[in-house]
Design a protein around this nucleic acid. Sequence first.
DNA 1: TAGATTGTTAATCGATTAACAATC
DNA 2: TAGATTGTTAATCGATTAACAATC
Lengths: 222, 222
Amino acid sequence: MEHRSDDHHKHDLNGIPHSTIRRLPVYHRYLSDLNRKEVERVSSRELAAKMGINPSQLRQDLGHFGSFGQQGYGYRVVELLGEIDRILGLNQGTTMVIIGAGHLGMALANYEHFTEYGFRVAAVFDNDPQKIGRTVDAHTVQNVAELGEFLAKTPVAIGVITTPTEVAQSIADRLVEAGVKAIWNFAPVNLKVPERIILEHMHISESLFLLSYKLQQNNAAD
Amino acid sequence: MEHRSDDHHKHDLNGIPHSTIRRLPVYHRYLSDLNRKEVERVSSRELAAKMGINPSQLRQDLGHFGSFGQQGYGYRVVELLGEIDRILGLNQGTTMVIIGAGHLGMALANYEHFTEYGFRVAAVFDNDPQKIGRTVDAHTVQNVAELGEFLAKTPVAIGVITTPTEVAQSIADRLVEAGVKAIWNFAPVNLKVPERIILEHMHISESLFLLSYKLQQNNAAD
DNA sequence: TAGATTGTTAATCGATTAACAATC
DNA sequence: TAGATTGTTAATCGATTAACAATC
């Protein structure tokens, strides 16, 4: 009845291999780069070389979603980027609420790249009277006691959890109760949510652990 | 001569499959959980069930590093956790400097879980006169102009980049120049660093894009 | 047209899972 | 001892890469 966010290498997601989906954001980033440099066309060979992957893989991946190129020419950067935007569901004005107005919550609330991709922070909540009412950039921190009330009036797609670990699960429960469709969790804990809720865990320390492993290997090699 | 941080599904890392290494931090998290609950022993079947993976995979993964269990009994939680700590190079007092004292940098500087795993923030730097000299928790923000000087006196293993995207590359260059062994990059840009430098990219927006993809699929299904 | 490059099928390679002998 | 569970070899499955006909 419950699911976890750790199905890293699980196999399908609506018939598309998980490995393919995980690469979409990366394609997006490299294409954005080219687009910023006003490059007009790119071949699978060129783009794959930039990314350090195999051109066949790139074509195979795109093939899951349609035919976006042209034989003998390659891909128009703007067009392909647009397709990936569409596939990823970007630029749709998806709304989020952030629970936890600590440094991390504030960092996210003011993260310019979200707006760039069509995400909008509808509100920031906290339970600390010291923080409630304070305005940071465009956002006034609201009392988390009013979370349910707020979401009843303003439906929001994504609940972002940047609270201390101890309260993350109870906040998740309240977000689910209030009807969010997805949870983006920054607390280092395995949340339990109903099957229908999309759960994405931002594993900050996992990234550091991986780095630590490599560092360790390097040191051992010396 | 340069490398990238996106070799997500690349194959080997000192003979160990990359897929295995990516699971180590996850094992660590689940074992910490058990340890916190003072569970003494766990079988591969139990642990794998908790994680939603296959018990064979767990045993296979561990098998790359040694034999940590006991037939008919399973694994002693404390012991296995200790082994994974060791494999990941945790609790070795690895030092870091943080460049960029914005919300994100401050969030990291005060992230209690780092200390918990033996990482130590040696200093925080910024170039904003408004921020320099300000003390947040244990850290006084220092002038980034003095970064090289600081690192010459106090060698540090990891440079953490939480600056705006535009300056991330030049900060990376200076960190490499000053002798850090690894860079943990939070700016959404593909840094170029020499082969010998370990580079770990924290892809905050990639995680959000993945979530967005799933949300999109869900909506389409309605 | 000739050259280039896609989209896709087939071949390879690696990772996951199953099975089981060893043994606590 | 009998039952349980590891560590590891072998089988399966899926993902990556190669190859190439289609075609711009």
